[in-house]
Amino acid sequence: MTTMTTTCADTFDFFRAWLRAPLRVASIVPSGQALAELITSELTAETGPVLELGPGSGVFTRAIINRGVRESDLVLVESGAEFATKLAFRFPAAHLLQMDAAALRSVEIPQGWPVGAVVSGLPLLSIPVKKVMAILEGAFAQMGADGAFYQFTYGPRCPVPRPILDRLGLKATLVGQTFANLPPARVYRIRRRPARLAPAW
Score class of each variant (00 low, 15 high):
Arg189Ser: 07
Phe91Ala: 06
Thr44Asn: 13
Ala180Leu: 15
Pro199Lys: 09
Arg186His: 10
Phe12Gln: 13
Thr85Val: 15
Pro114Gln: 09
Leu43Trp: 06
Gly48Pro: 14
Val50Gln: 09
Gln177Asn: 09
Leu174Ile: 08
Glu137Ser: 07
Met1Lys: 13
Arg70Met: 01
Pro156Glu: 04
Lys86Thr: 15
Leu124Gln: 03
Thr61Tyr: 03
Leu104Glu: 03
Thr47Asp: 01
Met99Ile: 07
Val160Gly: 08
Arg70Lys: 10
Lys171Asp: 12
Leu38Asn: 06
Ala45Met: 00
Phe14Gly: 08
Leu170Ser: 04
Gly147His: 08
Phe89Leu: 11
Pro161Ser: 11
Leu38Ile: 10
Leu38Asp: 08
Cys8Asp: 11
Leu96Lys: 14
Thr2Lys: 13
Ser72Val: 02
Thr47Lys: 02
Ala9Lys: 14
Tyr188His: 04
His95Gln: 08
Val132Ala: 01
Glu108Phe: 00
Arg186Val: 01
Glu71Leu: 00
Ala81His: 14
Glu137Asn: 05
Leu43Ser: 04
Gln111Phe: 03
Gly121Val: 07
Gly138Val: 03
Thr44Leu: 15
Val69Ala: 05
Ser57Glu: 10
Val29Gly: 00
Asp166Leu: 09
Ser120Leu: 07
Asp166Tyr: 04
Gln98Cys: 06
Met99Asn: 08
Ala102Glu: 12
Thr3Arg: 15
Thr85Ser: 14
Arg191Phe: 00
Tyr154Trp: 07
Ala134Gln: 14
Thr7Ile: 05
Thr7Asn: 09
